[in-house]
Nucleic acid binder design. Structure first.
Lengths: 147, 147
DNA sequence: GTAAATTAGATTGTGCACAATTAAATTATA
DNA sequence: TATAATTTAATTGTGCACAATCTAATTTAC
């Protein structure tokens, strides 16, 4: 029998880890109309915001490295959602931008956040506070990982 | 430019998703002495609690399916941490139990949760509340996924 | 008792996720 | 200016994570 502090339920990281996966699963049916995976949806979210961004910047926004991004972006390029091209200013950099198809997808996506939050069934106040704690935690942990 | 509700920063799931990955990364150096990955560490946490459990139950505890568990448990068996054997009572079931090595590993693991929480730098009160929201969210989302 | 339905775990196929490494381009230094 | 150091994205290798499928065992229905 494990000591109290080693119990699974008391591991905050486990709850985050499991919740992240469960929430991603909740997105799956909502993303069918876009025909994208959850990480791809995140890429689109960023591109709808920026329209054009380097792989490096995308990685910074999503806390993902090029090992993950490159194959994913390639698949999205193949699917007609985005373009990838070398920057003329710095040939090491690859710029990602939306195709018309990718831009159009935003319309279909506009209800998704509401649908998701609705399924959470959380009070507004709790949601705001929870989001704040999450944001702070993410920044703090990311910073720790940078050290 | 994306509408406000489609901005990345406003997606609660993104924060959870990113925080989960960043926290898992924070565990990596702490888990070196055990020579296990984070998901493997979770398996050990459960086994230190239960000592013996079926693959099905393990999956229920960790919200993982056998597609993920079977290869992971095989690797852990190979590493000498646990045994896997068919249940005599129901030959479809596989029981997982700790080896002596697996049991011993608990001692080395006992400081890890403290080390992790220390790195979070969170106030006790905030941590308690955060954990509560996480727990509730996990249950709610899991339930939604069961429907 | 027998056949149909369900269950548990294994397997197959695909998409991440990340550490380490590589090649080319750019920046910093002497 | 030439060389060393750093940066960017791609690649390689390994470990998940999950949907779909399969096989064998067990349970349920008749």
């Amino acid at each position: 029998m494990a000591e109290e502090h080693l119990k699974l339920e008391n591991q905050i990281c486990f709850s985050i880890y499991a919740a992240a996966r469960e929430m991603t699963k909740l997105y799956k049916p909502l993303l069918e109309k876009l025909d994208v995976t959850y990480p791809q949806y995140l890429v689109l979210l960023v591109l709808w915001e920026e329209e054009s961004i380097t792989v490096k910047e995308m990685g910074q926004r999503l806390y993902l490295d090029s090992g993950t991004l490159t194959p994913m972006l390639k698949r999205m390029e193949t699917a007609g959602l985005l373009y990838r091209h070398r920057s003329p200013k710095d040939e090491r950099s690859v710029i990602i931008s939306l195709t018309d198809q990718g831009k159009e997808a935003e319309k279909e996506a506009s209800t998704i956040p509401f649908q998701l939050v609705e399924q959470l069934g959380m009070e507004e106040e709790e949601l705001v506070q929870f989001k704040a704690s999450l944001g702070k935690t993410l920044e703090r942990v990311h910073q720790k990982n940078q050290e």
